[in-house]
């Protein structure tokens, strides 16, 4: 399994909202084929942006509260947070170059 930070309903506030670093959260589930296409890219980005952007994953199957709060009804969805606020929402599977463009805007 990946070594990307997994966040849950319980620690979302601490890890994401209160994070000093910008955060990208990949909302995914085991049942979702296209999420498995995004997963490896997210893992690469986690390494490349270490120390600059915190990259996390949330399993929407075992966490219901946070996905509902952010109105998530399609996965994969990536949400980029800066200072605890949503700065961008990316729905669907997109190439790495597109995700990098969005990450750079956070820096």
């Amino acid at each position: 399994m990946s070594d990307v930070l997994q966040v849950t309903d319980a620690d979302f506030e601490q890890e994401v909202i209160k994070s000093e670093m910008p955060v990208m959260v990949d909302f995914w589930a085991e049942w979702c084929g296209p999420c498995k296409v995004v997963g490896p890219t997210v893992e690469e980005l986690a390494k490349e942006y270490e120390g600059k952007v915190k990259i996390a994953k949330m399993d929407v199957d075992s966490n219901r509260e946070i996905p509902t709060r952010f109105g998530i009804r399609n996965i994969p969805t990536l949400i980029l947070f800066k200072n605890g606020e949503v700065s961008q929402t990316i729905v669907g599977a997109h190439p790495k170059s597109h995700l990098e463009e969005e990450l750079k805007k956070l820096l």
């Binding site: 084929g33 296209p34 995004v38």
Partner: peptide
């Protein structure tokens, strides 16, 4: 451009 799969992943 993504990872192997295509439409059949859905």
């Amino acid at each position: 451009k993504l990872a192997p799969g295509g439409q059949i992943l859905t």
